[in-house]
Amino acid sequence: MSMRLEGKTALVTGATSNIGRAIAEAFAAEGAYVVVSGRSADRGKEVVDGIRSRGGRADFVQADLDGSAAASQALAQQATQVLGGRIDVLVNNAGIFPGDTTADTDEKTFDQVYAVNVKAPFFLTAAVAPTMVEAGGGAIINLGSWIARLGIPVGALYSSTKGAVETLTRAWAAEFGSQGVRVNAISPGVVQTPAPGEVHTGEIMMKGTPAGRTGTPDAIANAAVYLAGDESSFVHGIVLDVDGGRTTAAVIAG
């Protein structure tokens, strides 16, 4: 590795599995000291142990980001302490995905999904961004989704939360960019962790796309490394599509 994040500290939410785990592992491999955050202490330990076994630096901070300001503020405080007093990079990745149709979504589910997917990163950013400003700068990376801009017949609730996250990305870039904090987002496409011999239904959604296949968590992690590092110092307020061309090119059925 080129150690593109050497000397930086990072907090990654929802980092005990899938995309969040891949981002935490990639950050550590590039030299960052990473706080892995999530609800499961067992899975968190597994991720941290794996990073340390490869020579990286990581610690786990347990957090249930339920949307309350208190939960987000507590995570920000604990992570800052663990990382030695500062967070250089924040990745707002934690989220939940109910695949219900609109008519099948009850009010409790609606409130919970907005709490986890929108309120939690809102209040975490509110807690972390000002301290980044005081420290001289930082980078915030939000996770959006391809279905925020390309409608599918299920998951309207989830896609609306990711639309909100993309809007917040642009608003925060305007709010914090002049103070040294860059805010950007990644919009993953159909991403799966492949299993030997398994054919996932997500592959159907990628037929006829430029990539012609589903993505892997590593593809999203590579984009996150770029947005976290100094190479992207002139990049503010973008939503980087990492989706195999699903939302940018016509899908030709074959």
Rank of each mutant, 00 (worst) to 15 (best):
S37H: 11
R39W: 04
D59N: 11
G55Y: 12
Y33G: 01
S53E: 14
L65V: 14
F27D: 06
G20H: 02
K8H: 10
R39C: 01
V48W: 13
G44Y: 09
G38S: 06
G55P: 10
G55R: 12
G55V: 06
G56I: 04
A74H: 10
V34C: 03
L65I: 14
R21V: 00
S37R: 09
R57V: 07
I19E: 07
E25V: 13
F60E: 07
L65E: 12
E6G: 10
S17Q: 08
V61N: 04
D59R: 14
V47T: 15
L65Q: 11
A74D: 14
D42S: 07
T13F: 01
T13Y: 05
K8Q: 15
R21L: 05
K45F: 01
D42H: 06
R21C: 06
G14K: 07
R57D: 12
A74T: 11
G50S: 10
G20R: 08
A29Q: 15
S72I: 14
A24T: 05
I51H: 12
G14S: 08
L65M: 13
G20Q: 07
A28G: 01
T16F: 07
L11R: 07
R52E: 15
V47E: 11
N18W: 08
S68Q: 03
D42N: 11
V48S: 08
R54Q: 15
E6L: 08
I23D: 05
A74Y: 00
I51V: 14
R21I: 01
G50K: 08
F60M: 08
D64Q: 13
V47I: 06
T13I: 04
A71V: 15
G7F: 11
I51W: 11
E6M: 10
V36M: 05
R39S: 04
R39V: 04
A41C: 00
F60Y: 15
G38P: 03
A63V: 13
F27P: 00
G56R: 12
L65S: 10
L11P: 07
R54Y: 02
A15C: 06
I51M: 07
K45T: 08
V35A: 02
I19P: 12
L11H: 05
A58Q: 10
G38V: 11
L11A: 05
A22E: 00
E30R: 10
A69N: 03
A74I: 01
R52Y: 04
S72A: 15
A26N: 05
S37N: 05
Q73G: 12
A22R: 01
A10W: 08
D66Q: 13
G7Y: 09
A74S: 13
Q73P: 03
Y33M: 09
I23E: 03
R43T: 12
A63Q: 09
G56A: 06
I23C: 02
S68F: 00
R43M: 11
S40I: 03
I23G: 03
I19A: 04
Y33P: 00
A24I: 04
Y33T: 13
A71I: 13
A69T: 09
T16V: 13
E25N: 00
R43C: 03
N18S: 09
S68I: 02
G50R: 05
T16Y: 01
G44Q: 07
